[in-house]
Computed example of a mutant assay.
Amino acid sequence: MRTAALVAKNREWAKDAVQETFLRVYRNIWQYDRAKPFKPWFYSILLRECYRVMEREKKVVPLGEQLERVAVEASMPDGKLDLYDALQSLQDMYRIPLILKYLHNYSEKEIADIMELNVNTLKSRLLKGREQMRDRLGGEPYGSKA
């Protein structure tokens, strides 16, 4: 549920995605290759369901969440975002690999398999995502002297 909420950026959408994921896993368990780890297979289904729900719901704009986000950003000192807000502000292509790498401790190879990406593409997205997080949180570039 936590991963789905971080990916979908909406708890209700995440609930839909998780429920549909468990149904799809149950219905398609016969396709699972027992020679491979279960979690990456499960998370690839979860991510696809999150994408599907987000695509379906993207036309709906939850006004309450927008107002809450503006209020949170306005209340932050110097307009800085906290870690969660900074992560949620990233594009999906950078945010999701960071979630899988640093919250779930997947290897780069596993994440590339889950997201159906080339490993080098994934590494590039992780680097870009870390750079964007650093910028959003007000950090210094690696190697710079303060």
Rank of each mutant, 00 (worst) to 15 (best):
Y51S: 15
L67W: 10
V18E: 12
M93D: 15
V60G: 01
R52F: 07
C50E: 07
K15I: 15
W30R: 15
D16Q: 10
R48P: 10
Q88G: 11
Q91S: 15
K15W: 09
E73L: 03
N28F: 05
R27C: 11
S75M: 10
R52Y: 05
E68S: 02
L90M: 06
I99M: 01
G64K: 11
E65G: 15
D113Y: 10
V72R: 14
K109C: 11
Q19I: 13
P62R: 01
D85G: 10
A35G: 08
P77R: 08
A74T: 02
K80G: 04
Y26H: 07
V25K: 05
I111C: 00
A71T: 12
Y84A: 15
D92P: 03
V72K: 14
E108N: 12
L81G: 06
M93I: 15
S89I: 09
K59Q: 07
H104Q: 08
I96L: 04
Q19H: 14
M93N: 11
A86L: 08
L83K: 01
E55R: 13
V60D: 13
D33P: 02
K59T: 13
R24D: 05
L67V: 09
I96K: 07
D33H: 03
A86W: 06
E49R: 04
Y102W: 00
R34Q: 14
K101P: 07
P37Q: 07
R69D: 14
E68K: 13
K101I: 02
D82P: 00
W30K: 13
Q19M: 12
R95Y: 02
A112P: 04
A71V: 05
L47A: 07
E20H: 08
I96H: 00
V60A: 09
L67H: 00
L63T: 01
L100C: 03
Q31T: 09
E55W: 11
V25R: 00
L90S: 00
Y84C: 09
E108H: 13
S75T: 01
Y84Q: 12
A112K: 00
I45D: 03
Y106N: 12
L83A: 15
G79C: 05
T21F: 11
E55L: 13
K39F: 06
L63F: 14
S75E: 10
E55I: 12
L83H: 03
E55C: 10
K101N: 07
K15M: 06
E73W: 11
L23T: 06
R52M: 11
L103T: 01
A74F: 06
A14L: 09
K101Q: 04
A112V: 01
Y102K: 09
